[in-house]
Design a protein around this nucleic acid. Sequence first.
DNA 1: CGGCATGTTGCGCA
DNA 2: TTGCGCAACATGCC
Length: 267
Amino acid sequence: MPELPDVEMTRRDLKRWLVGAIVTAADTGDARLSRPASPRAFARALLGRVFERVERRGKWLRLDLDHGGKVFSHLGMTGRWVRVAIGAPVVRFERARIDVVLRGRPFSVRYADARRFGRLLAVRKDIADWNALGPDLLAEGIDMGRFSEALKNGRRTVKEIVMDQRVFAGVGNILATEGLWIARIDPRSPGNALLLPADARTIARGLRSAIARELANRKQYADGRADSFFAYGRAGQPCPRCGTRLSKVVLGGRTTAFCSGCQVRRQ
DNA sequence: CGGCATGTTGCGCA
DNA sequence: TTGCGCAACATGCC
């Protein structure tokens, strides 16, 4: 599921389903997902409340309730929200349920998460994970000065820097791989080798373009990932731009595909 | 059966 | 003290 474009699509769903809806029942039995809050706190915070807003920053979602409470949701690796009829049976890997009434119509919204790497907690104020997030490439203008600084100060590779949620909220392994391919920059380049303002701009443009492509793709194939990636998951196959066999390397513990033919490596 | 997976975190070690 | 690499988390799927 989860990188910025998927989470954004989820935000739009939740906004459509929940804003203005009143909660008639809420339940989760999963202490792991609701940590450090308790499953009981989740039910208690939601019952009888009305959703006012659904916000997103990077891969985090925040649902604001009418009494000032907030529900934070992170999809982890396999989390997803679905809407079903009221009283519908438990969906596969269901971890939480929110029954609501919107404009007189009752229905149910379920959170499913096979691996349970996600988070789902109801709290009174913003959590540290949310506050620590850097700018969101879709929502906010990015501060090029700050990005250049992050690159300059980083001994890490440019891919690791770009995936740092404090630098760009929402960029994960797919977006970083695709964005750098579009920007024609070798993901192994150390950040402090990319000193030109033009480099930062090119990378930001590549990431934005990758996000736009993914969003368009999600809209078209509402379900699953019809992979139309340039580089992600395609090591060994020809580069769609220059035909060179795409290489594979592990950076920051994540598999990374790139083209040694047309992605420039800086030292 | 082995290997890999869109994410994050915490631990051991240099 | 800081930083880095990597295992761990829990499960599906090829």
